[in-house]
């Protein structure tokens, strides 16, 4: 989740560090906490290098990618390693997503039927990319508890879909640190059975702020299977050329 948009967010999160600390003190409003975290994460723009590890009981493989984001509706991810995956790219513009396969030299607009497909074989689906912000708009939120983690206050927030919202989950349980770092996001089915959980396993300074360096997504019922995402470098609020988020750039990268 939030693959694309998140890495940019931390800049904002730390930039707004003082605000963030002031926020919860003022009012422990669940929606505001989540929104603050998302708002903080969405920097104006970002450029990052990310390593993804896909782990299965029998094997494991790694992928490296470059990502660029701008605002909350533009994102481009391009794989750089291994050679087999190099050039595979995903472009998200608003609600539409295109994927480019260099071997086929073909760009397709992601059809609804492919939403459930695994993104490059990981435990993330295209759907996770497309619906990243659903939790803000389609759920109601409430704080169910607080804890102190690493000297920060962490809020446990339960997000329940609004009636009629196009959401499959029964609920989400999110733990957010008072400085805008999301620590955990758990997805429950409609029987309130845990389906999968994403945890932040390493927080470190990046661009001079605390950043969730390592995220791991684990399906609940398949032990020994997970996908790990590590942000190795990132720059925030950089100026990105407008031509970056275009289909022609998706196919023929300039720089």
């Amino acid at each position: 989740m939030f693959l694309v948009s998140r890495r940019s967010g931390l800049a904002a999160a730390l930039l707004a560090g003082a605000l963030a600390i002031a926020g919860p003190a003022a009012a422990a409003d669940a929606t505001a906490l989540l929104k603050a975290a998302f708002d903080n994460w969405r920097g104006k723009s970002s450029r990052a290098t990310i390593e993804m590890t896909i782990h299965r009981p029998a094997w494991e493989r790694g992928l490296t990618m470059q990502s660029w984001t701008e605002g909350d509706d533009k994102a481009l991810v391009r794989f750089t390693a291994p050679a087999k995956e190099r050039g595979n790219a995903t472009l998200k513009l608003g609600h539409e997503t295109w994927i480019y396969n260099p071997k086929l030299n073909q760009t397709i607009k992601l059809p609804a039927s492919m939403l459930a497909q695994s993104w490059l074989g990981s435990d993330f689906s295209y759907n996770d990319l497309a619906k990243a912000e659903d939790i803000l708009t389609d759920y109601t939120h409430r704080i169910t508890g607080t804890a102190t983690v690493d000297g920060h206050t962490a809020y446990d927030i339960e997000a329940v879909p609004k009636p009629g919202a196009p959401v499959v989950w029964g609920k989400q349980a999110v733990r957010v640190r008072d400085d805008g770092v999301m620590l955990r996001e758990a997805f429950y089915d409609q029987d309130m059975k845990l389906v999968r959980v994403m945890t932040t396993e390493k927080i470190g300074p990046l661009g001079g702020r605390p950043y969730p360096l390592v995220l791991v997504m684990r399906p609940a019922d398949e032990p020994g299977r997970w996908t790990r995402i590590e942000t190795t470098s990132a720059q925030f609020d950089v100026a990105l050329p407008a031509s970056l988020f275009t289909r022609s750039n998706l196919e023929n990268p300039r720089g």
Binding site: A112, S113, L115, A116, S125, V168, W169, D189, Q190, V195
Partner: peptide
């Protein structure tokens, strides 16, 4: 159409 549940998305 595509129908989506918590676990699967199927055409």
């Amino acid at each position: 159409a595509v129908i989506q549940s918590e676990y699967k998305t199927l055409p």
